[in-house]
Simulated scan of single mutants.
Amino acid sequence: MRPVPLKLGPGSDLHRSLVQLGRAQNAPGFVLGVVGNLSQVAFQCPGPGGPTVLQGDFEIISLQGTVGPEGVHLHLSFSDGDCQVWGGHLEPGSLVLKGADLLVGVLAEPAPAEQPAPAAGQSAPATGQPRVAIAVRPGCPYSARALRMLRTLGIPHALVEPRAEGSVPQVFIDGVFIGGYDALAERHGRGELTGLR
């Protein structure tokens, strides 16, 4: 494992900075440590509903999770001025107040570059390529939920550019468009995603 330091200045978006780091390193890794504070925090609690956004002076207590070329999956805990502790999935829009210093452990061997989504109607991708491709946009809560579901289930996936006319997320299995988050969740509920691991 190779340690990679990340120093963020005021106004930096914590989530997006780690997404950029994962893409730049082109290898999976883990957040090893963090010290810093935030002026705004966007986080997703378990269950339905969109992200919660708080503004103020918040001290980061912990940040755990994975970083890689396909995205991030991060859990944040932080405290407010009354030492009340909050936590959940880190979302875009969490802004650094004065500064934040992070250490990310990146695996020595780089991961293969992302593969584009196959065209509709094409046969399944060649061996070693993900059968699932997904198009997302930053800040979209349903995109974040779909990515979280795929990561939690351990399903390999490639990130692709969204179709201009469509909403996100856009999910493709073996090159065939199946729909968005609801369609993915329905297939998960029927147990149809386990074969994609």
Rank of each mutant, 00 (worst) to 15 (best):
R2K: 15
P5G: 10
L8R: 04
L14T: 12
R16K: 08
S17A: 15
S17F: 01
S17H: 02
L18I: 03
L18S: 08
A24Q: 15
N26W: 08
A27R: 01
A27P: 02
A27E: 01
P28A: 07
G33V: 09
V35E: 15
N37C: 13
L38H: 00
Q40C: 07
A42N: 10
F43P: 11
Q44A: 12
P46E: 10
G47K: 03
T52H: 12
V53N: 13
F58G: 00
E59F: 14
V67K: 10
E70Q: 11
E70F: 00
E70W: 00
E70P: 00
G71S: 03
V72W: 00
L74F: 04
L76M: 10
S77D: 05
F78P: 02
D82S: 14
C83K: 14
W86Y: 15
W86S: 14
G87C: 13
L90H: 06
L95C: 09
L95S: 09
D101P: 01
L102Y: 03
L103Q: 11
A108T: 12
P112Y: 00
E114D: 09
P116S: 05
A117G: 12
P118D: 04
A120T: 12
G121R: 02
A126W: 08
A126S: 12
Q129P: 08
P130M: 01
R131D: 06
V132P: 01
G139I: 01
R145L: 13
R145D: 12
R148N: 12
G154Y: 07
H157L: 08
A158Y: 04
A158T: 10
R163D: 14
A164V: 10
E165K: 10
V168T: 13
V171D: 04
F172M: 09
D174K: 08
F177E: 08
Y181F: 11
D182Y: 06
E186M: 12
H188G: 12
G195W: 06
G195I: 07
R197H: 09
